[in-house]
Every structure is written in C-alpha cells, then in structure tokens.
C-alpha cells in the first residue's frame, strides 16, 4: 500500500540544532557532483516510465547526451582542474564499459565515484528485492573493478526508487544518499540496519533542472549559483552548511554555458572558509563528528514536542 510519508526521517527544524563544524574551521562544505551517464538508444520499456519522448531512435536527446561524454566532459573537467575541485562522480556504472577513458581521466585526478545505477535508461520502478540487490551488487563490483574504489554514495538511477532502496543501500555499506532534498545539512536517515545519512545534493542548483526544466539562460545560472553560495556561506558562520553543484556535461559543457560555471567556481573558491571536498569526505566527517549528536538531538526534539 502506498504511504503518505516515506518514513525515512523525522521532522527536525533548522533551528537549535547542534553546531556543525567542518575541517579547518570551514563554514561551508562545497562539492561538485558530475553525473557521468549513458543513455541507451533503445532500452527495454519500463512499465512506469518511458526512456524517450519519441519512438526510438530519439536522435536529439540521445546525441545530446553523447555530446556530454565526447566533448562536454573534457571542457567541464578543465574548469574543475583550474579551480582545484575534485568531482564526486554520480556514475552510471556501464560507462566503465562504454567509455573507460573518461573513468581513467577522473581516476587520475583523485575524483570519487559513487553509483547512479547501471544506465540512466533503466529504472527501479517495479523491481523486486532480488533485482534491486542485483543492481547494487553490479554497481559495487563494476566500480571496484575499474577504479579500485568501494562506492560510498548513491543517487538512484534517473532518481527512481522503491520503498526498500535506502534499507538495501545501508545493508550493503553505502554511507550516503543524494536523493533527499529536504535539508541544507547532512541528516541521519532511518534504515533497518547500519548508519546511513543524506547529503545535500540540491535539485535547485542542478544544471539540468535550471536549463531544461526551469529553462533559464546561462548567465542567469551563474547568478543563481553565486546567490545560493552567498546565503549558505552566511549561515555557515553559525553552523556548517553544504553546497552541492550537480552537473551533466551535456548541459554545462556546451560552449555557450561553460563560462557561467567557471564564473561560479571562481567566485566560490575565492572565499576563505570553504571546504572544497567530495561526498565521501563529507559523509565520513559527519558520521565521525556529528551523526551521534544529530540522532540524540532528533530524539530530544521528538520527546519534547
């Protein structure tokens, strides 16, 4: 039966929380999460969602996404190199098979790899537990084989979940999810076993949401990113915040858009008190220093309401 509340976290207001500190006394943890994806030309049709608007081959969106891998990725990576930002890669793990050159280039730069499913054209809707376990195991094995990294984070493929997704991820030892957009600070997530957290990933700052859903112009995106940073940086003086820029090379990496991203990175990284980091590092630090306090504070808030 469908539920009215996902049951993953309790209401916990953004006031009177235990103070979050970041390494080096930073006010804000800043991470950039490039989605490196493969969209299949003609995948099997999930009963709940079509991969493409047009009957296959849907040439424009297919080719546009391929552009991200062939061209846009290299432009995006150059900007990140310039400002010393390591990516936390939201990876369709099949890219390891299709385009290992991209994986190698990220690996050389010390980027993190977390999982974004197998393909962005395979959805979890309708999967039973064994099927969902199979894709999680595939993700762990593929990423470890190609990068020697054990994945620590998860963004559901094309943001498709089942009710058991978070429990399974925690059971397999994933530390953080990027799928919960309810906060600007990391949060404990209620799962059947283990310690599992949510890290702010921000749909609002996601290039695809800004460009393809909100249909904003590139120079406006630079303004939005800087405004988002300014506010979180200001609040971070009181208690540490997290800012994420989720990216897709096919959107941010086109010639007419790349400078807007560079302008934002230049602005953000020129500030003192910004911890330029990765999802895994944020998760490890939070789990070690803040998780227990947060769980106690949430319990106290629940008891006192």
């Amino acid at each position: 039966m469908e539920k009215e509340d996902p049951g993953l976290y309790d209401y916990w207001p953004y006031v009177n929380r235990p103070k979050i500190t970041w390494p080096g006394g930073a006010r804000l943890a800043f991470w950039v999460a490039p989605n490196i994806e493969y969209y299949e030309l003609d995948p099997p049709a999930n009963p709940s969602r079509k991969a493409w608007a047009r009957p296959a081959p849907d040439v424009v969106p297919y080719a546009q996404r391929d552009y991200g891998n062939r061209v846009g990725h290299w432009r995006m990576m150059e900007i990140m190199d310039r400002y010393g930002v390591r990516g936390s890669v939201s990876l369709n793990v099949a890219v390891c098979d299709h385009h290992p050159e991209i994986i190698d280039a990220c690996k050389e730069r010390g980027w993190e790899f977390f999982s974004h499913g197998i393909y962005n054209t395979r959805y979890c809707y309708g999967m039973d537990e064994a099927q969902e376990r199979a894709i999680i195991e595939d993700a762990f094995e593929t990423v470890e084989k190609h990068t020697a990294q054990k994945i620590a984070g998860w963004l559901a493929p094309a943001l498709t979940h089942t009710e058991r997704t978070m429990d399974l991820l925690a059971e397999y030892g994933v530390k953080y999810t990027c799928d919960l957009f309810c906060d600007d600070q990391p949060q404990p997530v209620k799962v059947e076993s283990g310690r599992f957290i949510s890290i702010p990933y921000s749909l609002e700052m996601n290039d695809i949401i800004v460009y393809n859903v909100q249909r904003q112009a590139p120079r406006r995106y630079a303004e939005m990113l800087k405004a988002n940073f300014d506010q979180l940086y200001e609040e971070g003086a009181e208690s540490g915040t997290v800012m994420c820029i989720p990216l897709h090379a096919y959107a941010v990496g086109t010639p007419h858009r790349i400078d807007a991203f560079a302008e934002a990175l230049d602005y953000i990284t020129s500030h003192d008190g910004v911890w330029v980091t990765t999802g895994r590092e944020i998760a490890d630090y939070y789990l070690e220093h803040h998780y227990d306090d947060a769980v106690s504070a949430i319990a106290a808030h629940n008891a006192g309401r």
Binding site: N46, I118, M127
Partner: peptide, 13 residues
C-alpha cells in the same frame, strides 16, 4: 518483478 530483460545488457560493451 520487472521482466528479466530489464537486467540484461546485451550492448554493454
């Protein structure tokens, strides 16, 4: 569950 083809990737290469 989803039909088996959803977890088969014949063109994963």
């Amino acid at each position: 569950p989803l039909p088996d083809e959803h977890l088969r990737y014949p063109l994963r290469r």
